[in-house]
Design a protein around this nucleic acid. Structure first.
Lengths: 188, 188
DNA sequence: GTCTATATTGCGATAGAC
DNA sequence: GTCTATCGCAATATAGAC
């Protein structure tokens, strides 16, 4: 039996990493920041994660799990249109957070691309799972251009996240969400 | 009369900053990197720019000038549709560069948002000039929803830049460029 | 397993010779 | 105006006491 009150330190560190790396960015986040957010002493971090890279990897896994959960829920819906609109609603469900910090996976992908460790591949793999799922939905709608549409939909979300963040205007995201739902309905 | 062979050191530093900050990212670029790219001794940088922030500002101005030049050229075209398609072609004209390093202004906006200096406002102002111009074109086409369409078009570009970069697939960008041109034609 | 103290490195910025 | 040498600091990572 472990402590019944809250998750173990490893889990707390992984969760804090996902949150703080999103809010502050990878480069400006120190191990001390993550340790403080997880309520774990700084020096103790290295017992659970040997390097900062391993903490970033844990954050990527965390985001991947969240997206997998979202998509697993959507798979219970009847039609591909409903599933895609559900994804759009899930993506656009936190406009205030996006205005403040951007898309968790998108900002991470952008930052990790500039590093020479291999972590850009890890975040790309997470995003590719989403892209493939979207393509499957468009294919189920009988679209020959399913891949291209999947890229367009994912790009619309990523792009509006960046603009919403840059201009600090949550309304941009909600308006684009409505537009994309109409667009999906129009494709059938 | 100044040296006739190449631009002065200040201009060389500003140009090198725009290039290197795009390629390596703001946080991972050192003043030594920029100095080397500009062929200026490290210590001498401070004669022209007192802080790293001032060099970043110079890079933002550089990108702003490039976008203004592009748009000034487009304003000579006859119809708003032609002008918008011209912008799309301009945006999508370097897919290989985008696959390697992302959109120069988009990646900068994403990174500067995480800093506490005021530079995120400066890059946002540059991007707002472009967004406003796009809105003007849609308005000239008689669209009531010009702002929303402008956000959608700009977001489509920013989003596909991020995906093109993340997946290292220049083809994503060229395909989306064609799709957006067809979309503009369909709106008239 | 937990935590403190510290070694090490790399960068932004400065002092000052020329 | 130009450039070298170096200071001061912050952050990752480690050593080792408890």
């Amino acid at each position: 039996m472990t402590d019944s009150k809250r998750p173990g330190k490893r889990e707390r560190l992984a969760g804090a990493a996902a949150k703080v790396l999103h809010e502050q960015g990878v480069e400006r986040t120190t191990l001390a920041d993550i340790a403080r957010a997880a309520d774990v002493p700084v020096g103790n971090v290295y017992y659970y994660f040997k390097t900062k890279d391993q903490l970033i990897q844990a954050a990527i896994d965390e985001h991947g799990r969240e997206l997998d959960t979202l998509i697993a829920g959507l798979d219970r819906l009847e039609t591909p249109q409903e599933r895609l609109k559900g994804l759009v609603r899930g993506w656009m469900s936190r406009p205030e957070m996006t205005a403040r910090y951007g898309c968790p996976t998108g900002t991470l992908a952008s930052e990790l691309d500039k590093r020479d460790d291999g972590l850009d591949k890890a975040i790309a793999a997470v995003m590719r799972r989403v892209l493939d799922w979207v393509e499957t939905q468009f294919a189920a709608m009988g679209r020959e251009d399913a891949r291209e549409l999947a890229v367009a939909l994912f790009a619309a979300y990523q792009g509006v996240s960046l603009l919403t963040n840059t201009f600090r205007e949550p309304e941009l995201m909600t308006a684009e969400g409505r537009r994309l739902e109409r667009w999906i309905d129009s494709l059938a």
